[in-house]
Design a protein around this nucleic acid. Structure first.
Lengths: 203, 203
DNA sequence: GCAATTACCTACCGTTCGGTAAGTTTATGG
DNA sequence: CCATAAACTTACCGAACGGTAGGTAATTGC
């Protein structure tokens, strides 16, 4: 392993520069030379701290997924009801999104990327699954407690909520005019819980 | 322009090969050499039919968005109620998805890609917006007719539905076990319309 | 005081990239 | 029967790529 100093100043400089370039150009199009230039260093400095270009990328992606997971857990613990839990998750994700736009962009681009676009050994699928499963478990629990309808599978509802969240996050990535704040988080959860249909019959 | 024969056999061969490579490796990582090799042709043959690598990519992406738009319009015309319209859209998208997996993968990857990852002149944003606006208009119309709740903005609900769709499509790209069929389309629309919450109060 | 290690540097490697110059074959029109 | 153009080909270009060999200054251990 080429990780002698886990949190060295140089390593952080490289990570920060890499974040910018990967976020703005994607993995393949980002140039190692441009990254080290941006960091004010040389290529051997990078290859001293990271195994290769893929290792540098992996370090960023894993950190993003882990941080999202940690934040979602913490937010969900603040409430006992599913509404409060989902609102909390949404609010904290929105907040994290504002402060880490580029990291989130990388995270999303990775999820939807072509299979051969990213380095081979990158195992992000399990981290994605873990994050989704956490929301799924919350929803399944709420369903068991009677807070959610029985007629939908918990997995279907988790998909619904996850889809809503992702739609807002990605659209905010593209169209800057979509506001992501606490008030909006409440409205989104309300739509998810109450449904869009005008009440005529329960259906 | 270097488009002497709009639907020549060679041009189609190149497009088909390009589709495979762009879908499997992403734009930047896909090699022009590999594409023409796959098509059994040479590089100048490609540059005879397309301006450059970006032009080749653009031709694919535009076709995908336009086809989706055309299909959604046709499906929506089959019904007068929002439920039937959304179910129809979902079903036809699922079907198209099965038959054009790689094209859809490119389409999604393009939407979520980093800004500098794709060629500069590629103006896919307006086509994305047009497709979204179509769904938005359907939902706004239904809201006006009283089929949908007034308490949510039509835009919010359009986001909700679009998010649901995208969540299913993208997850089917990653996890193959998610089934996309007509029955599932009905369930998804039902969840969107009825909401996830167990009925206690209308909220 | 000196060997070893850390943390880099300059300079360069072979490969692959997108793109092109120039020649060749085939079909068409006069 | 030959000129023109379309539809390609082989062969190659300079540039950029990821990665490395080998050297160096600074710090540390003994």
């Amino acid at each position: 392993m080429a990780r002698p100093v886990p949190h060295s100043q140089t390593r952080l400089l490289l990570l920060r520069a890499a974040l910018r370039h990967f976020a703005n150009r994607g993995y393949a199009a980002a140039s190692v030379q441009a990254i080290v230039d941006d960091a004010g260093l040389s290529k051997p400095a990078l290859y001293y701290h990271f195994k290769d270009k893929a290792g540098l990328f992996q370090a960023l992606v894993h950190e993003a997924h882990d941080e999202r997971y940690r934040l979602m857990r913490a937010a969900a613990e603040q409430s006992r009801e599913i509404r409060g839990q989902l609102e909390g998750i949404l609010a904290v994700l929105f907040d994290y999104f504002h402060q880490n736009r580029e990291l989130m962009r990388i995270s999303f681009a990775t999820m939807f990327a072509a299979p051969g676009e990213l380095p081979a050994g990158l195992d992000y699928a399990d981290k994605c699954a873990r994050n989704f499963d956490f929301v799924h478990a919350l929803i399944a629990g709420a369903q068991k407690r009677g807070e959610l309808k029985k007629r939908f599978h918990s997995r279907e509802m988790a998909f619904g909520f996850y889809g809503l969240v992702n739609a807002y996050l990605t659209s905010h990535l593209v169209l800057r005019d979509v506001m992501l704040d606490k008030k909006n988080a409440r409205r989104i959860v309300a739509l998810f819980l109450a449904g869009a249909a005008a009440k005529k019959k329960t259906d």
